[in-house]
Amino acid sequence: MINVIWFGILFIGIVFGLASGNGELLSKTIVTTTEDTVQLIVQLLGMMCLWCGVMKIAEKSGLTDKLAKGLKPVLRLIFKEAGQDDKALGAIVMNITANMFGLSNAATPFGIKAMEEMDRLNGHKEKASNDMVLFLILNAACIQFVPTTVVSIRAAVGSANPGAIILPALCVTTSASVIGITLCKLLQKHF
């Protein structure tokens, strides 16, 4: 469905551009935009390699293990079933840890594994368990210590201070996580 929507947006834009006599401007814009996109992707690729390397160093040095050990008692409290299962809790911790460092690409496999493990524990396979819903909320609103993707994009497009986003991102993601967990726990009592 999303492909149909994107095609519709592009088609309407091109038709409108040609009908309004801006065909030359439209073709120049397409060429310029594609060049800029390739340059941005190459710059982001370098930044993502850097941050993935930093994450590997954090992992090898034991920093992620220490963070995971700190998170486990808290996660055991908020996840009823998954908090008691080491496989599910391990995948949840790794996903949240990777997200905290802003490495959503690295967090995705752990998120999929966590959902698979929670589905294994789920007694009602036709619907998501409360733990699965809570995990989805935490995954979407995860606290970001270093929002590497946003910092990378800001650096790639020439921001004077790409790291200026770190403190606001930390405040917003912490608030979103706390509100998400609170609302999820309140709604779990009623549904």
Rank of each mutant, 00 (worst) to 15 (best):
C142D: 08
P73T: 08
A141D: 15
S152H: 04
T182P: 14
D119I: 00
A169T: 08
V74S: 06
T148C: 12
V54Q: 12
A107G: 08
I30V: 06
W51N: 05
V31N: 08
I78F: 00
K113R: 02
L10Y: 15
L134N: 04
K185A: 08
I14D: 01
E116T: 14
A91G: 01
E24F: 12
C142S: 09
A114F: 03
G62R: 05
T33C: 13
G8L: 12
I9G: 13
N22H: 09
G23M: 04
L138D: 07
I9E: 14
V74G: 03
L71I: 08
M55I: 09
L138G: 08
T174G: 12
I165H: 04
V74F: 05
N139C: 09
A128R: 11
H124F: 14
D85P: 02
M1P: 05
I78G: 03
T148F: 04
T33S: 15
S104L: 10
T174W: 04
S175D: 08
F11P: 06
W6F: 06
L187P: 11
I143T: 03
G53Q: 09
G90C: 08
F11N: 09
P109G: 00
V4D: 01
E116F: 04
M1L: 02
L67T: 01
A140E: 15
E117V: 03
L67C: 02
N105F: 11
L136Q: 15
I137Y: 05
V15Q: 04
E81A: 06
P147T: 01
Q144K: 00
G90D: 08
P147I: 00
A155G: 06
L18V: 13
V4F: 05
A19H: 12
F191D: 13
L167I: 13
